[in-house]
């Protein structure tokens, strides 16, 4: 087995790494970059604890080989907060007590982020579908769904407050009606 070189961007920082092809994205994140927020539960795609975003899409970091992400942009839980303040999803998870042991939380947050990026005001059913790839053994999920609903609202309000006057109010009203 020959080592190979890959170039990736993780949470905005570029890295060139020497690695072996049998190492997974998960191994690189946790061992080479010491980004241990991304967890390993099952290692076979079933629990979602290893969920990260690759080019904006949610994937299982345990099912991707390091060379398969060469040239790609990766976002992990460590890159979710911006300029030192929690992401609205993180804040909502705290407000709703949406975790107990916390092992599923990084994966849940990243799956939720991927969902809200494409669907800013999901229905409860869409949230359930969007998070179906992450298992939680503690909470019973309800607090998690509520947290995602709250975060979606918060994100929309932030977006709307940036738009002036009636257009913003109309969007806010429409999203309220859609809920």
């Amino acid at each position: 087995m020959e080592a190979l070189s890959i170039q990736i961007k993780v949470n905005g920082h570029s890295h060139r790494l020497q690695t072996f092809p049998n190492r997974r994205l998960l191994d690189i994140l946790r061992e080479d970059l010491t980004l241990t927020g991304t967890k390993e539960g099952c290692g076979i795609g079933e629990c979602g604890a290893c969920t990260v975003l690759v080019d904006g899409e949610a994937v299982n970091a345990c099912l991707i080989l390091a060379p398969q992400v060469d040239g790609r942009e990766i976002l992990t839980i460590e890159g979710l907060s911006e300029r030192g303040s929690l992401h609205p999803l993180q804040q909502a998870f705290i407000d709703h007590f949406a975790f107990q042991c916390g092992f599923c939380t990084p994966g849940m947050l990243m799956a939720a982020k991927a969902l809200l990026d494409v669907n800013p005001s999901p229905s409860r059913e869409e949230i359930r579908q969007g998070l179906a790839g992450v298992l939680c053994r503690c909470t019973g999920y309800i607090q998690i769904f509520e947290a995602v609903e709250d975060a979606a609202q918060a994100l929309l309000e932030t977006a709307v407050s940036g738009i002036e006057g009636t257009a913003g109010a109309a969007i806010a009203q429409r999203t309220e009606e859609a809920r």
Partner: peptide, 8 residues
Amino acid sequence: GTPQTRTR
């Protein structure tokens, strides 16, 4: 599968 496996 899941959203994660459908991406890949």
